[in-house]
Computed example of a mutant assay.
Amino acid sequence: MSARFRTDPEPDPVYVELVSAMFDIEGSTWIAGLIFTGLGLYLAIALNDPITAAITLAGAVVQIPRIFLLRRFRRFRRAAGGTLPDARTAATWELRYSLGLILFSALLSGLCLRMFAIGDPVFQMLVVGMMFGFCSGVIARLSVRPLVCGLALMVTVVPIAAAAWVTPEPHHDILAVGFLLFLVAALGTVRQGYDAARRHITTAQEMSTVARNDPLTGLLNRFGLRQAFARIVPTSAAPMLAVHYCDLDGFKPVNDRHGHPAGDVVLTQVAARLRTILRPTDLAARVGGDEFVVIQSPVRHGIEVAAFAETIRACFVEPYVIRAGEVRVGTSIGSTLATAPRPDLDRLLAEADRALYVAKEAGRETVE
């Protein structure tokens, strides 16, 4: 039950942001529910009509879990660090929200149909005004998910347009055509709103990626490393982490002899090799021309630090393929272990850098 409601296949990060935007509407949901309930009660009392009362009661009941769903989503998102963890989770939340929205749309349409069946033009005018207000809110708030928004609009408008069309009075034909033209225009507006929101989110994410990542290797830069490090949460079972500061040995001769494009090729291959040894919880960043930092997290025992540093060193041993042939580049590594509950990244980097200096003094391709 987690298939996406979509018209276009958005990238997962964009899709997650679009779904999250659906849930920032608790205020308007309250207002829609109060207007529906208040007007429905007025009509039910004025007409002494049990069917109108039943529709009103059902609409009020449906709004209660919708509001609780919005609040539950906010708590879930906050516990997850401010964003949904993946597209599958987002799809599940989208489905939950959509079911409540479509059901409420159907009940609102049902109230309008009841007024058309009764035939009083004043009451018809009241419910049609409510219908237009509801649809306008749906367009403004939910165009980020065009299929869900479009379904809600059609469930609301199409039955009312059909009821107006079959009503004997001639002016109701004009009203029915007006409803359908409104629906067509509304769907066009929804598409435009979705396209604008998607472009905005895509651009923002691209800019964020550029700000956090090294453009050559795709690894984190210093800013991205700092952000990712702040999200690391030590656990009682694995309360420690380690910082490994790596400096390439023999890289400058590659640049001098073969040129900077060859050096760039080596750096991208270094990054690719680092990715192969990282666990999902580890971090890797390029923090200088030929300097890399690896965060090993979590660490359960201090002996794991030296073992992982040796794994890092070993992944640099094999030759690198450039246009002119093969070249060899090694690395010296300085490591430090953090045991404090809230370790300071700058202090850890400084300690690892000092250990790196000691390793360099001891000889190339050394781990300290």
Rank of each mutant, 00 (worst) to 15 (best):
T37S: 14
T37P: 11
Y42M: 08
Y42D: 06
Y42V: 14
Y42G: 10
A44L: 00
I45A: 06
A46Y: 15
N48I: 11
N48H: 15
N48F: 15
P50G: 07
P50N: 07
T56P: 09
A58D: 01
V61E: 06
V62W: 01
Q63R: 06
I64M: 09
P65H: 09
P65Q: 07
P65M: 06
R66C: 00
I67W: 11
F68N: 03
L69C: 11
L70D: 06
F73G: 02
R75F: 02
R75Y: 05
R75P: 08
A79T: 06
G81T: 06
L84R: 03
L84V: 08
P85K: 04
D86F: 04
A87S: 10
R88L: 09
R88F: 07
A90G: 12
A91G: 13
W93F: 14
W93E: 00
E94I: 04
L95Y: 10
R96M: 08
R96W: 15
Y97T: 02
S98L: 07
S98C: 09
S98R: 02
L99A: 06
L99N: 02
F104I: 09
S105P: 14
S105Y: 12
S105G: 07
S109Q: 06
R114Y: 09
R114D: 02
M115S: 15
M115V: 13
A117Q: 10
I118N: 02
G119C: 05
D120N: 14
P121C: 12
V122N: 14
V122P: 14
Q124P: 13
M125Q: 05
M125A: 14
L126R: 04
G129P: 13
M130W: 15
F132H: 11
F134A: 12
S136L: 06
S136I: 11
S136H: 10
V138C: 09
I139M: 07
I139N: 03
A140F: 15
L142G: 11
S143I: 00
R145V: 13
R145I: 10
P146A: 01
P146R: 04
P146L: 00
L147C: 03
C149W: 00
G150P: 07
G150E: 00
L151G: 05
A152N: 06
A152Y: 01
V155N: 05
V157A: 06
